[in-house]
Design a protein around this nucleic acid. Structure first.
Length: 818
RNA sequence: GCCGGAGUGGUGGAAUUUGGUAGACACAGAGGACUUAAAAUCCUCUGGCCCGCAAGGGCCGUACCGGUUCAAUUCCGGUCUCCGGUACCA
């Protein structure tokens, strides 16, 4: 009995596809029966265990948007497929529930972030469950719970223990709106990646993680990973390894030296001046009395510039002469030392040798301040008119005994020469900076350290974790570099775990990335209160076989968690040095018309409405049918009706009376082709074409006058990973009492995928002139014979001479004529 | 600027694997069947141009220009556009 509400208001009788009722029924069934719970069954061999992971969401108040289900549906289909293929699949879900939005909401309304966060989690859970994903909900975690962040703090202390966490007073990226420091990775075009407010330089006390200590391994181990090349490249670029040399330039007055880093030691003879970063320690020593005022003014101005201003002003070079000179070690020339803000204190040695002939920035600077330009690399050994810097490799000129060497040879020779003369050595540099880890905000993990006036910084003992986030009166960021926790005196004032004397707690909190650095490990053993995860569980499941999520985390989460994982690996706490073996970035779902979906454009699609109107199975299928998972594609309200029609058609077909006879061979061949195609496409995460094949198959079944059980049962199994609710219902209708998700995936018979008849194409000089249906498996001679018998071909061959005949079995015959 | 990726009908997209029938499957559109009518459903057509009453046939066509090949969406060289990343990293 189906009421009109369930049938979506259509008046069709009884048989209308009752998706709402079906979906509710099976979601309850899966929940009540814990259908997708998975345990560490030791009888299952290693190669049959698979860990498939989704990037867990931040539970925002807006609820799920259509982008979330895209990746989740993809992994769900893949997991359901693997289970039917006999794999033991770990597929968990949780929430990344510390973060600024909840705190900002608290500021506005006074609602405790925990309250709003937990409310949002319930909303997310409900929405995710409404899509019928096969998660093992018993492993659900949320990063803001003390049971979870106890271990986030524990791992932080391990980092501290290893000397990988240090305190520094340094100029950092300060978001003027969030009122907190940011990591380099969180700044985009001089703006905060979260709120797009300008980022300024601010000198405050920070906790910093020494990710640079792992730069070489983070770079090298990318080669092991099955990630897209473009994503690996993004990480490579971010790490930014370069090879070159450090070179020592003695000061002209004999009282010291300047060390520079260069990737082009072969251009040393062309170094006509030097530039220091304004913050460089030697500036104050170098500056002459008469230039002092000008230099100090420049330093002041540079320090006030925000990142935005620095990039905007990048077109014109600025700087001042310090009055000091250094000696170019290769030719003993006395060269002036300048300062300029195009030299960054944080990269290399904070100082450069300027080779204006072969570096565009140095060239611009030299032109601006009328400094000499000496060409030392030439494409042909001849001198050229310097119109701009030539950065290409070439032949050395103006370089004394090194003249005539190629750039590559010269680099090697020069480094040898520098070493012999104690003037330098080869060096490697990275763009990657250490990770600024502290946030001056409330809603995050408290950093479990204590400042003791006699013992210094002392960690909270492991057994006292979690260090609970205290309740506070106000969540308002102080803006002074202290977090709101600082106001909570009874919390801040504590005793030193070491000497028992008076001490103060660290009041900074961790960034949102902390919790997501290791959540994939907690899923393995979510209830463990003695360890972050039991080693046996880690060995059982890790590493993650497939990880799916958005590309926006390319250099944030994915770099940070690789770093933490390597640290844990070095402690012997995990079994692999990389966490995520294969990674797929799903494309963005755009609004209709191909523009970005946004609240301001009013084109946001709400999954709840889609589910209510078309059903979860339609939603799942549509998102997969739109196109390849990895590419961005626009939502189409009309597109989903096509998918809905397909499922309605499947439902109608299911109402036909079953026929137990042997189906006609043609349909049997189509079935086996379909099993082959859908199996292949599902395995390779090419869901759009798999769905197209289902449509072809049902289209043909519709043309038959009977519904053959031997065709229909395998089809329902093929459908099951994609439209699991409908498939469960149909499976039950077919008389089965267990869940379709526990069935074995159908196998195809290769012999039955071979068609008996195929269309041969006949070409003359590569142009198609005729076609004919023939039996498959014809010999080449037979194909040629048929080709030459075609009336149209005969006609076109008169008066022509056949040069050559090319045949491709079961495909074509191409006759080359003159 | 540099580094990636991508450009296929009115639209989303197919063409597995090493080159072999371009446009699968859908959406939209047109026509038809059923119906008192509508909705739903079912069937047919649907890249462009041209010849033909028709059956049928021809030419062009995968961003653009060129190359390799019997044959190019696919391989090679160049140009343009869009998207993503990055931005004084010496």
């Amino acid at each position: 009995m189906i009421d009109s509400k369930i049938t979506d208001g259509y008046h069709a009788p009884m048989k209308k596809y009752p998706f709402t009722a079906i979906e509710k029924k099976w979601q309850e069934y899966w929940q009540d029966n814990k259908t997708f719970r998975v345990t560490e069954d030791s009888t299952i061999p290693r190669e049959k265990r698979v860990y498939v992971l989704d990037m867990f969401p931040y539970p925002s108040s807006a609820g799920l948007h259509v982008g979330h289900p895209e990746g989740y549906t993809a992994t769900d289909i893949y997991c359901r497929y693997l289970r039917m293929k006999g794999y033991h699949v770990l597929h968990p879900m949780g929430f990344d529930s510390f973060g600024l939005p909840a705190e900002n909401y608290a500021l506005k309304t006074g609602t405790h972030p925990r309250i709003s966060t937990e409310k949002n989690i319930l909303l997310f859970e409900k929405q995710i469950k409404a899509l019928g994903f096969s998660y093992d909900w018993d492993r659900n975690i949320s990063t803001h719970t003390p049971e979870y962040y106890r271990w986030t703090q524990w791992i932080f202390l391990k980092l501290w223990e290893k000397g990988l966490a240090y305190e520094a007073e340094m100029p950092i990226n300060w978001c003027t709106n969030c009122l907190t420091g940011l990591a380099n990775e969180e700044v985009r075009d001089g703006l905060c990646e979260r709120c797009n407010s300008p980022v300024e330089r601010k000198n405050i006390r920070q906790w910093v993680l020494k990710i640079t200590a792992y730069a070489d391994r983070l770079l090298a181990d990318l080669d092991k990973l099955d990630w897209s090349e473009s994503l690996k490249l993004m990480q490579r670029n971010w790490i930014g390894r370069s090879e070159g040399a450090n070179v020592i330039f003695p000061l002209a007055d004999g009282k010291g030296e300047i060390e520079v880093y260069t990737t082009r030691p072969d251009t040393l003879f062309g170094a006509t001046y030097m530039v220091l970063a304004p913050e460089h320690a030697l500036v104050s020593e170098l500056v002459t009395a008469e230039r002092k005022e000008e230099v100090e003014a420049y330093i002041r101005k540079a320090s006030r510039k925000s990142d935005m201003e620095r990039t905007e002003l990048a077109k014109e070079k600025t700087g001042v002469f310090t009055g000091g000179y250094a000696i170019n070690p290769v030719n003993k020339e006395k060269i002036p030392v300048w300062i300029s803000d195009y030299i960054l204190i944080s990269y290399g040695t904070g100082a450069i040798m300027a080779v204006p002939a072969h570096d565009q920035r140095d060239f611009e600077f030299a032109v601006e301040f009328d400094l000499p330009i000496v060409q030392v690399v030439s494409s042909d050994g001849e001198l050229e008119e310097p119109k701009e810097a030539t950065t290409a490799d070439g032949i050395a000129i103006n370089s004394g005994q090194f003249n005539g060497l190629t750039t590559a040879e010269f680099k090697v020779k020069m480094i040898e020469w520098l070493k012999e003369n104690n003037l330098g050595r080869s060096a490697i540099n990275y763009k990657l900076r250490d990770w600024i880890f502290s946030r001056q905000r409330y809603w995050g993990e408290p950093i479990p350290l204590v400042h003791c006036s006699s013992c210094g910084i002392v960690p909270v003992p492991y057994e006292e974790l979690p260090l609970l986030l205290p309740e506070v009166e106000s969540y308002k960021p102080t803006g002074t570099g202290e977090s709101p926790l600082a106001q909570k005196e009874e919390w801040v004032n504590t005793s030193c775990p070491k000497c028992g004397g008076k001490a103060k707690r660290e009041t900074n909190t961790m960034p949102q990335w902390a919790g997501s650095c290791w959540y994939y490990l907690r899923y393995l053993d979510p209830g463990n209160d003695r360890q972050f995860a039991g080693r046996n569980k880690i060995d059982y499941w890790m590493p993650v076989d497939l990880y799916v999520g958005g590309a926006e985390h390319a250099v944030l989460h994915l770099l940070y968690s690789r770093f933490w994982h390597k640290v844990l690996y070095d402690f012997g706490l995990v079994n692999t040095d990389e966490p995520f073996m294969r990674l797929i970035n799903q494309g963005m779902i755009l609004g209709e018309g191909g523009v970005k979906m946004s609240k301001s454009l009013g084109n946001v699609i709400n999954p709840d409405e889609i589910i209510e109107k078309h059903g979860a199975d339609s939603m799942r299928l549509y998102e997969m049918f739109m196109g390849p998972l990895e590419v961005s594609k626009p939502w189409s309200t009309r597109g989903i009706t096509g998918i809905k029609r397909f499922l309605e058609r499947v439902w109608r077909l299911a109402q036909w009376e079953l026929c137990e006879d042997e189906p006609p061979r043609e349909l049997l061949v189509l079935l086996h082709e379909t099993i082959k195609k859908i199996g292949h496409d599902t395995e390779h995460i090419e869901f759009n074409t798999a769905i197209a094949q289902m449509m072809i198959f049902t289209g043909e079944l519709y043309k038959a006058d009977k519904l053959y059980r031997r065709l229909w049962e395998p089809f329902v199994l093929l459908l099951a990973p994609y439209a699991p609710h409908l498939a469960e219902e149909l499976w039950q209708q077919l008389g089965h009492s267990s869940s379709v998700s526990k069935e074995i995936y159908p196998e195809f018979n290769e012999a039955l995928t071979v068609r008996e008849v195929t269309t041969l194409v006949f070409q003359i000089n590569g142009k198609i002139r005729a076609r004919a249906d023939v039996q498959t498996g014809l010999a080449e001679e037979a194909m040629e014979k048929i080709a030459l018998e075609q009336p149209r071909i005969k006609e076109l061959l008169t008066e022509r001479k056949i040069v050559k005949i090319i045949t491709v079995p079961d495909k074509l015959v191409n006759i080359v004529v003159r």
